[in-house]
Every structure is written in C-alpha cells, then in structure tokens.
Design a binder for these strands. Structure first.
Lengths: 250, 250
DNA sequence: TTGTGGATGTCGCCG
DNA sequence: CGGCGACGTCCACAA
C-alpha cells in the first residue's frame, strides 16, 4: 500500500511478534489506513485528566485522523481514548509494542503498552459520509414552523436562533394578542436544565424589549419531568407537549 | 471455542464469503466473543430517532453485551451504533451478510447490510476493569474538603450531596460568620448552565432554611466564561477559582 | 424504571 | 480559537 492510495487495502497479522506489528502500524499510518490491534495491554492517559488501566485484553483502533480508541468487550464508550487531531506512533521497547497518540496543542498523550498481541490489522477505508438522521431537534423546529398552531392558536413565529445576551432563542414569535413568545425546543423529555435555559432566554428577552412588553416562555418537548414542571410553574413559564416528526407512536 | 470459554481465542477470516462470515459471527456471538467486521455496507437505525447511511467502507464492532459500533476512518464517535443490552443476529439474504442488533424493550434496531467483506474476526477478550481516573469533579470536591480554606478563610463544609427539592448540593457549609454556603463544583471552565444549577440550589436552600437565614452561593471551577460571570453577578452569586488536584500546571 | 447531573464527554455552529 | 448548546449523547447512582 503506497501513500495516497485510498483504495481498499487489507493487511492482517495474527499473533504477530511485536516488531512486525510495529512495522505494520508504521506503514499503515503512513498510508492513512485504519489500524486495529487486539491484545493484552496497559493504558495510560494524561491530558485534560489522567487515567490508567491495568493489564487487560482490549481492542485498540487507530484512525488516520489521529483518533485512538481502546475498547473492552463491554459498553458503548471506549475505556480510554484520544480525540482526533493528534498523531500516532509505534515502537518496540523491551520487546513490547508501545503505541502512543499525542496532541501537543492540547497537552494530551495516550500510551498503550502491549504484553501480548493477538492480531494487528490495517484497512484502507473510504466513506462518502452522507449520514441522514430524523427525529432531531431540527425536525421538531420544522414541525412547529410548518404548523405554528401546534403550539397554540394564533402563534406566529418571527425568527429562529434569535440572539440574546443569554444565548440564541430556538423560536421567537408572537401570540394571538401580540405578546412576545420565547420557545425552547427539546427533542425528548425535558428536565431542569431545559427550564433553566428557557428562563435565561426569557429574562434576556425581557431586558432586550421595551420594559413593559410581556414576554412568555414556552418549553416544547414530548414531556417534562416533575421537577421541571415545578420549576416552570415557579417561574411562570409554560409547557406544550410535542414530539419531533417521526418519533411519535403510530 | 465453546460457549463459556472466556479465555483468549481468535478467529479471523479475510475476504470471507458472506455465509462463512455469518457462521463465524454466530459461533462468536454464542461464545460471548467480540466480533469485528470490515467491509462496504449500508446502515439503518430506527429507535429513539431514525438514521440511514449510504454505502461506505466501515469497521463494525459487535460486543457480547449487545453493543454495536459502526466506525468510519474519522472521528471519535461511531457513525452509527446500538447501545448495550440488546442482541446481535446475522444472516445472509440475497448473498449479502446482514447484521442486526435489536433491543425490543427500547424499540431499537440497527441493521448493517454488507456489499463487500474485507475481514471478519472474533476475539475472546477478558478485562479486569480496574480503571483509575484523576482530575474529576470528585477530586475537586476532595480538595475542597481537605482544605476548606481554599474556598475562603473560615469556610466549614457540613455536608456533600445535600438534598434539596431542586437537586443535590455538591458541598453545603457555613462561612466564618455562620451564613449558609452552597457550593457548586465544576472540573473545568464553567458556563451558564453551572450558574443556573447553582442558582436553583441556592433558591431551594433558602426555602428550606429559616426565611431570614442568608444563603450564599459559590461556583468553584478553574474559570468561568464571561456570560457565566455576568449571570453570577445578576443573581448575587460568587466564584472561586480552583482546579481539580493533578490538572494544575506545574 | 425513571430522574438527575457528570463526562478526559464529542461535535457542529457561530462569533 | 473560545463560547455555547445538541446529542439517537452514554453512564453511574439514587429514589
């Protein structure tokens, strides 16, 4: 595999010796390939925090963009990792493969040291990256904009992402009587932070507008927790139940 | 590899035909092994939302706990996934491997359909899961408890995780003059939500205590954003700069 | 099961 | 580059 070759390529080594693994990682990294390493290893991370992992068998993924992931046989989350943007390196010290990812700008470093190697593989992957997702907050926003009556009769959206000193209001509009309305959207059941957000935006909007202008705040979400409902009541805010299109039952 | 065998085991197939891949996935899943599949595939997810991915070359990881991860050659995040708790299945339809993860209780389903297979491997992994992390919010809390003067002279912690109707207060205590103090901790630079949280806890604590008791609110974090600082001032709350032990420079 | 908030969150957008 | 909030967030812990 030559550098710049983005086509399909695979190189696999089972139970490789550590120097063969190092060489494979070197050439794969140079060719912008994705590398997987399976073996017994220890892990050390230092950066935004510090973490260590004792010996265990794990799957390590090195991506050409600098991402490093250390996965065990459980969980969605990697047990340790390095974010994109850094560089990978591999060497052998005391007959042991050491894989290191670092990003100087963030002062981060991830070190994986292998006792045992079960498998090392390199893959040249290409992906068009054309994801599509439905049921997001943007879908909920579009639903409200396409049918403002779903909020309440006479509601008129005037702006989305309206800037205030406290942040951007999801939907800003007017009710049937001409009062200002601040709408905060949540794609799923809303908790206390959502109320906090809405409250901040309402306060900021009151300051922005004429002092005597009424500003209503409406939280729009599929549902709210009890605590959130209480907080809404305390602050004179309102709630409208609405789900993003496509997530509703039926 | 027999069911219940948790020891080290590896089975690898390069450029397998789709039925061989299916068989390997079946036996690996039955043996609680971790499976990696590399190939060109499409992905469909339906559950909390809905997402689709067009054809692309990706790394798919199936874990024995029901986790499924679809990784491209970029990014920390899987481009699609299935959370732990479900089950994996594999079959061949129209000469194409289809891998499906589903969790009925959550109404979630992830379907990966392969056009091309570069590699299928299974690994029996064992991990002690003895992670250690430093520099967390818990470390910041311990730092304050071990040296209350780091907040201010005369500060006395009385409780951690003190319950209020608005949630749990990180540290509750008294200042040198006997006023109640509510402390909210953040391990990194704090933004508006942190102020909102602190404000809620202070309000709830004021209601809990005698009406005439003064309650101070202190945000403890390495730093705050401008907006957060303004919000603190508006609500009469305070800020003390402090980092979790071990993250500080020097 | 649900609620709540932390996380080495990551990621995208916008100033 | 930093601030800010969404995310199919995940996750641990408590009620």
């Amino acid at each position: 595999m030559t550098a710049g070759d983005e086509g399909v390529g695979v190189e696999t080594c089972q139970n490789p010796d550590h120097e063969a693994a190092r060489d494979l990682i070197h050439s794969a990294t140079a060719a912008d390939a994705l590398v997987t390493i399976v073996g017994r290893c220890t892990v050390d991370y230092a950066g935004r925090a510090a973490s260590t992992l004792g010996p265990g068998e794990r799957l390590v993924v090195l991506k050409p963009d600098g991402t490093a992931l250390v996965h065990t046989d459980e969980g969605y989350q990697p047990v340790s990792w390095h974010s994109p943007g850094g560089t990978h390196d591999a060497d052998v010290i005391d007959d042991r493969l050491r894989v290191e990812s670092h990003r100087e700008s963030a002062g981060e470093r991830l070190l994986v040291e292998f006792e045992t190697l079960l498998d090392v593989s390199a893959y040249g992957l290409t992906d068009d990256r054309n994801p599509s997702v439905d049921g997001t907050e943007a879908d909920l926003r579009d639903r409200v904009l396409n049918d403002p009556e779903s909020i309440e009769s006479g509601f008129t959206p005037l702006a989305t992402e309206r800037q205030t000193p406290a942040g951007a209001v999801d939907i800003f509009g007017e009710d049937a009587v001409g009062r200002a309305v601040v709408v905060e959207l949540k794609r799923r059941r809303a908790g206390p932070e959502a109320v906090g957000q809405l409250g901040r935006y309402v306060e900021a909007t009151r300051r922005d507008l004429h002092a005597n202008r009424t500003v209503r705040g409406i939280l729009v979400a599929p549902s709210v927790t009890d605590r959130a409902r209480r907080l809404l009541a305390e602050r004179g805010l309102e709630f409208v139940a609405l789900t993003p299109v496509g997530t509703e039952s039926g």
